[in-house]
Design a protein around this nucleic acid. Structure first.
Lengths: 126, 126
DNA sequence: ACGACTATTCTAGTATCATCGAAATATTAC
DNA sequence: GTAATATTTCGATGATACTAGAATAGTCGT
């Protein structure tokens, strides 16, 4: 049961879904039922359902039925795994010395010019 | 210059791009030029260029030109910010007691059944 | 200036995704 | 069983994303 990190990032990579996820993080282990979520993150039920499905299939959420309601809650285990994946792939290697002290940036040759304006958020009008 | 976390997750939410990002994490602050990346993550130049653009526009990478080569490297500042966003939205609140021991919010009734098989990775064939 | 090299942009085809109303399913209450 | 409530699934549409070959642009060596 290998987690698909790309799918998990992808699930969080949509504003609506990220908001839902954040809401459920704040909601705690009990989670919220769909109707409660819908009240807080207004969107049509079918749209919400699709987003919940995406988040659940990527295992960032889990669903639990309680009488008429279905409660969605953060799947802490897999969420923690995702965080670990991200931090260990970055911080860890960094602390391991690959990104050694001080010189974090610019070690190559002097910059000259750039693609177009790739590192700025600027629009491209030509 | 507010970072768009959803866009950053989205950038990592594609297998090819995630692989490129991980490669560059391992490459350290110096980064790698496009040709080196292409050699390690085989894909057509135009495809690679688009992925690098997506990652750069979301500010997970930065680009720096050195003579004929353009070196892409992890934008540590923004990457760290993303990690912090994820951890603080989850772990932090959790440790802060929101997810405190035991019940946090109105306990529901005993579970009965579920949507279809949303929390399992199972295929849906019908 | 020319040619080789590096990388991006153009253009286009295909595929996947987001959205949402309507219909269907599941559960409880009467 | 019927009604009421909660949520999902269907179906359709428009938008966006991925992919990649071909054309273009920046840089260096001669």
């Amino acid at each position: 049961m290998k987690p698909d990190f790309a799918a998990q990032f992808n699930a969080l990579g949509q504003p609506g879904r990220l908001e839902i996820f954040r809401l459920l993080v704040r909601a705690g282990p009990q989670g919220l039922c769909v109707d409660d979520i819908k009240r807080r993150v207004p969107m049509p039920g079918s749209t919400l359902s699709h987003h919940l499905d995406t988040l659940t299939r990527s295992r960032l959420l889990s669903a639990r039925r309680s009488s008429r309601f279905i409660y969605y809650a953060v799947d802490w285990e897999n969420t923690a795994r995702l965080i670990r994946f991200l931090t260990e792939d970055c911080c860890a290697d960094l602390h391991r010395g690959l990104w050694a002290s001080g010189a974090n940036r610019a070690a190559g040759a002097p910059p000259r010019s750039m693609p177009r304006e790739r590192d700025s958020g600027a629009k491209r009008e030509r």
